[in-house]
Design a protein around this nucleic acid. Structure first.
Length: 288
DNA sequence: CACTTGACCTGTCCGC
DNA sequence: TGCGGACAGGTCAAGT
């Protein structure tokens, strides 16, 4: 599920609801979703106050006043939904809502703030929450090798091109999905930005010109920016911290638009397989 | 090494 | 309807 724009949207919504609040209670029962020892959770999370909510790549970090942090990766189907206590039970949700009464069968962790609760839902159980000392957050394997933030203006075109070119022998789609090359791009925004740059996803990095890769960075930045402004993309089950869908797919160029006309040239968009992933492409704009 | 392919899970959709 | 298989927005470990 969530790529950079979705995690950014959740971060902003979460900050509104939980900053400054104190954790009253925590419940969790699937060890892979939250592997910490209950004693550690009781000591450093229960009773702690939320100091800050931040994002790095597709990962959320919630800093506590105990000098511990919650690190959260939503992977494919993770959701973080905050509910005020008054509407947590039978609060009346729109019938088309993706989230009904909580907790539900996919709830893996519940954090009770007294006035409301934060639910970590994860249908496929790939995601996880971990509690660790704040200074150790940057030391987890994922952060040690993750690449630069694409929306960081200090990332130069040259630096981006150099990083992509380390994956010379592979497809450009596999290269930008690699989190050590560039952070936060997943299947949706890879397809969107490759269409923007008129590059076929299966093109080998070694066959692309610098000018094309420069255009690709522009496409990544454009897609991610529009997506953040739209509250992210809801394809199957992504929702923001309030349980609402994102609307980016209304503006999508190719993602999930197989059989529909390309917005640039009108040619029918195709769905193919590249880098082991479903991939959407305009066969005319993005020649191989 | 660099790259590709399963595995981790549950749910849904599609064809027979 | 029922059943099998493919597929789903991410990342690792294991394989070539």
């Amino acid at each position: 599920m969530p790529e950079l724009p979705e995690v950014e949207t959740i971060k902003n919504g979460l900050a509104k609801h939980i900053l400054g609040k104190r954790v009253r209670d925590v419940s969790f029962d699937w060890p892979k979703s939250f592997p910490n020892d209950p004693a550690q959770v009781n000591k450093y999370l229960v009773g702690a106050t939320i100091n800050r909510v931040r994002r790095r790549a597709k990962v959320l970090i919630v800093d506590l006043d105990t000098n511990y942090s919650l690190v959260i990766h939503l992977k494919m189907t993770g959701q973080l939904v905050y509910r005020h206590h008054s509407i947590a039970f039978g609060g009346g949700h729109p019938t088309d809502s993706l989230v009904g009464d909580l907790p539900d069968r996919s709830t893996r962790v519940t954090i009770d703030f007294g006035a409301g609760r934060l639910y970590f839902n994860d249908q496929r159980k790939f995601g996880w929450v971990r509690l660790l000392p704040t200074p150790e957050v940057d030391e987890i394997d994922f952060f040690k090798k993750v690449g630069p933030e694409p929306l960081d203006q200090t990332l130069s075109v040259k630096d981006f091109i150099d990083r992509v070119r380390r994956r010379k022998g592979t497809s450009i789609k596999a290269a930008i999905l690699d989190q050590s090359v560039i952070a936060g791009v997943g299947n949706i925004y890879a397809d969107e930005s490759l269409h923007y740059a008129k590059i076929h996803p299966a093109s080998l990095v070694g066959d692309l010109a610098d000018k094309q890769l420069s255009k690709l960075l522009e496409g990544i930045r454009h897609s991610l920016t529009v997506a953040i402004e739209s509250g992210g993309s809801t394809d199957r089950n992504y929702v923001d911290a309030e349980g609402n869908r994102g609307s980016y797919l209304k503006y999508a160029r190719v993602f999930r638009r197989e059989g529909q006309p390309c917005p640039v040239c009108g040619t029918t968009i195709e769905k193919i397989r590249v880098a082991g992933r479903g991939t959407h492409v305009c066969p005319k704009c993005q020649r191989h």
